[in-house]
Simulated assay, not measured.
Amino acid sequence: MVKRFAIVFLLALLVVQSVFSGSANAAAPGMYTDIQGHWASEQIDKMADLGIVKRKGYQPFYPNKPITRGEALVMLNRVFETVYGPIEKPERKPNLDHRYLLRGEVDQLLSNLKTMMKIETDDLGKFDPGDRMLYYLYLAETGQLMKKQEKENPDWWMSSAGMQWPLTREEASLILFHMMAPQKFRTANIKPQDTVSFFNSYYEWKRDRFYRDTYSPYPLAIREFNLFLTDKTFSPNKILTRAEYIVVMDRLIDYYRMDVASQFRGSPANQKHIAQVYLRAANLAYETKNQKQLSALFTDDAIKSMAKLEQVPTYNGPVQVSVKADENNSKALWVIAHYIDPKNGDFQIEYRLEEDASNAYGRKITTLIYSEK
Rank of each mutant, 00 (worst) to 15 (best):
H38V: 04
K3H: 11
L102S: 08
R251D: 06
F347K: 07
P66K: 07
S330R: 11
D131W: 12
F198Y: 15
S322Y: 06
D250N: 12
T115L: 09
Y278S: 06
N200I: 06
K324W: 03
R99L: 13
S18I: 02
F347I: 05
M258F: 13
T230G: 00
M179F: 12
Q59F: 00
K65N: 10
F185W: 06
P182E: 02
M117G: 00
D49R: 14
L137G: 07
G22H: 02
P268L: 12
S295G: 03
G130R: 08
W205R: 05
V8F: 11
D300P: 00
Q36R: 13
N344S: 12
Y211H: 10
S371C: 00
A275W: 06
S159C: 03
L333N: 09
Y84L: 14
L139K: 09
T288S: 12
L220T: 11
V312G: 00
L113R: 01
K343Y: 09
K343H: 11
L11Y: 07
L145S: 14
I274K: 09
L145K: 15
N290E: 14
S197Q: 14
R78G: 02
N316W: 04
E170I: 08
T33E: 07
V79P: 06
P219K: 10
R186N: 07
W157L: 10
S371L: 02
M75Y: 02
S41I: 00
Y202W: 04
D250V: 07
F80W: 14
